[in-house]
Amino acid sequence: MFIINCPYCGERDQSEFSCGGEAHIERPKQPTELSDDQWAEYLFMRKNIKGIQFERWNHIHGCRKWFNVVRDTSNDKIHAVYKMGERPPIK
């Protein structure tokens, strides 16, 4: 049970949040231009990293805002939290 520093509310218990999977996967602006394979890449393919992972989180039982989290999946250490649309503060 880790603590997430919601960029809008501050530190809250993990139980207030829900994870929305890998971050920085933009919905294609022109889906009709894409081949089946390209669309499938967007639709289905996700990383499952042991280590530093960029994730989307939603403060679902709080302000209901979505934001990004950089988390080490091996020890749950959170390295950064930043708002939607912002560039990751670390690589």
């Binding site: 919905r27 939603n58 979505w66 939607m84 649309g85």
Partner: peptide
């Protein structure tokens, strides 16, 4: 509601 919020906040701000 959550799904619609997700699209509004992340894909179509």
């Amino acid at each position: 509601l959550s799904k619609l919020e997700d699209y509004l906040q992340t894909e179509w701000p």
